[in-house]
Design a binder for these strands. Sequence first.
DNA 1: GTCTATACAGTGATAGAC
DNA 2: GTCTATCACTGTATAGAC
Lengths: 202, 202
Amino acid sequence: MTQTTKEKIFFTALDLFSKKGFSGVSIREITREVGIKESSLYNHFSNKDEILASILTHFRGDFSKTLPPIEMLDHILQSSTVEQFLKAGHRNFKNFMEDENRVKMWRVLQMEQFRTPLAREVILEDLFKTTIRFLEIVFQKLIDLKKIREYDPKTLAIEYQYPVFSLLTEYTILKFDGKDTSEVESRLDNHIEFFLELITIK
Amino acid sequence: MTQTTKEKIFFTALDLFSKKGFSGVSIREITREVGIKESSLYNHFSNKDEILASILTHFRGDFSKTLPPIEMLDHILQSSTVEQFLKAGHRNFKNFMEDENRVKMWRVLQMEQFRTPLAREVILEDLFKTTIRFLEIVFQKLIDLKKIREYDPKTLAIEYQYPVFSLLTEYTILKFDGKDTSEVESRLDNHIEFFLELITIK
DNA sequence: GTCTATACAGTGATAGAC
DNA sequence: GTCTATCACTGTATAGAC
């Protein structure tokens, strides 16, 4: 639990950025919280923008580990039912977002999306494109395995994943205000049930 | 086309906020662009926060006009097919977002969602809740009219609308970078087709 | 790797003349 | 309703001692 000064700066900045936005937080405020002088910060980060870039890159690295590698897919898909697979994916992502630092990174990503090109890249490439491409492969394989009905795999990927993104947006806002999230969570369960029913061969 | 000073301040602030975020824009920058002195701005808005509140309230009012009043629903639903109804709604919203000021307000909303309680309220209440409640009533009526298959209307509302929100997020980012949006647009068309196929009585 | 000291332009906002 | 003048403070960043 012993943090280096650089780590302290990183997590303090993450916390403040996620509440007030990048431009709403000053170097003075970060260093005051960390307990060092402004000038000391520049021994660890060359400027304020580099702290933000470091946060976004960190999120990117973390997120890339949530999807199982394509090589393992065949094995996973053969040894589990579609329901098990989708629910495991759901649990997996839920675990990912249960880390409060990930939630903070998500908020920073949302707030910086029109100010920072890297934020847009992470949203478009990592969140949207990579996830959809992965699911497209999954559904194609499930069709080949005759585990689900024949359907355009990309359409299935979008119909499955896009509601999840919106539900996550709603969830994050509710959580931020400390409001009840049980309805959104049951909507997500409901969505998965609905989708399973839809693709199941009868 | 003759704008009052207050309007000039409003639209200049909207433009700048939508690019740099609220905290990234100074009163000086706004007034320089408008062509007045800083002190003159305070004759029209009591402070910087009031300009933001005015922008969010404006969006709220505009958006509330996009959904037809419930009293007219019976007439509309009886005199059109489900396909016509959904596609008209789509066109309607597309027109709404073709106004560049609305796009800017949307961006401000996204960026301010964790800094400004009013932004969260607009997203949760106006965008999510009101839209879903409206669609829930629509689908219930369509079921009663035997125009679509029997299904939980709230689930249908969510399955229809939530992908639209995500597609809109993606669309807005692509537009901001001046990138090609034709794929996202065809995904939206595809989603509507998919959903229509799903609820149609065969 | 931390500190003190310093630079200096930019911040939101107000008082009061015209 | 606009201006000039001014306020006290905050912004990022650097130089150089320890």
